[in-house]
């Protein structure tokens, strides 16, 4: 599906998520929904996370205490679709890609990945502090018959290129095409939702336009319990998290968490 043509008076968005960690149960439905939606490959042995290909990864983090004081939280981590600001007016990964194979869209705020352009230098992976980007260490293959379920809206990636969460960009394209056909300029909140948001049984993920006061994310991100991962680095991510547990917020915000006495987790 191809993008409708740009107009000068293009409606712009800043899509992002607010993920409620109090609700997230670590069930993993978002991970599987993402894999199914975006034609992610799988292998007979996927147990090596360092080479596994997950666009959405749910981290299991702990407060580092001993039995029975241990506490655990789950942190679903799609691409943070960083915007960058201040000195770093550019997305960490986008600014380094030598072949312009990944780009920041000012129309949507989405950080794209063009697989057929990427030549696999992996510089973008080194640039991303969230371990979002994954490399195709193998040719993708499907057991006989399995390729039947592949989604034609998303191209299958070849080995040797980097990929990552696209905010299910093809869904935006579909929604936008539909809106254009109906001579609308603006998408409704529920018209464009990502696969992980839709799947989440806990309703922990809310997706929408962060700058549109009508959208749920607009209000949710203002929660006193909201935070972003590695806020201090200035990556300016578009994924907000909400947790009422102090240690969780600190774990997300503070690099390495060993900064000083204000950090409770080990």
């Amino acid at each position: 599906m191809k993008e409708a043509h740009h107009k000068a008076d293009e409606k712009t968005y800043k899509f992002g998520m607010v993920i409620d960690l109090d609700k997230c149960t670590g069930c993993g439905a978002c991970m599987v929904a993402c894999m199914a939606e975006n034609n992610l490959p799988f292998r007979k042995d996927n147990s090596d996370r360092l080479r596994s290909n997950l666009w959405m990864r749910v981290y299991k983090i702990s407060n580092g205490r001993s039995f029975p004081d241990l506490d655990i939280s789950f942190i679903p981590r799609p691409c943070q679709h960083c915007e960058g600001h201040g000195h770093h007016a550019a997305t960490p990964c986008v600014s380094v890609c030598p072949a312009t194979a990944t780009d920041y869209s000012h129309e949507t705020g989405i950080v794209s990945q063009v697989y057929t352009r990427c030549f696999g230098c992996r510089y973008c992976m080194a640039a991303c502090p969230y371990h979002v980007r994954v490399f195709n260490w193998w040719d993708p293959t499907w057991p006989k018959g399995m390729s039947k379920y592949l989604n034609p809206d998303v191209s299958v990636r070849m080995r040797g290129v980097v990929e990552k969460c696209s905010f299910c960009y093809h869904r935006y394209q579909r929604a936008k095409n539909k809106a254009y056909a109906e001579e609308r300029r603006e998408l409704h909140e529920d018209e464009y939702q990502t696969a992980c948001t839709q799947a989440c049984p806990a309703g922990a993920i809310t997706f929408g336009d962060l700058k549109n006061p009508e959208h749920k994310v607009y209000k949710l991100k203002k929660s006193p319990y909201a935070f972003r991962l590695l806020e201090k680095l200035g990556t300016n991510p578009k994924i907000y998290y909400v947790s009422t547990r102090d240690w969780v917020r600190k774990a997300g915000d503070v690099y390495l968490g060993k900064e000083g006495k204000d950090v409770t987790h080990a």
Binding site: P98, A99, A101, R117, C118, F119, G120, C121, R122, F135, N136, M158, R159, G160, V161, V162
Partner: peptide, 10 residues
């Protein structure tokens, strides 16, 4: 690089 045949994209 993962796709040497495309190295010239740089």
């Amino acid at each position: 690089i993962g796709q040497p045949l495309r190295g010239w994209f740089i």
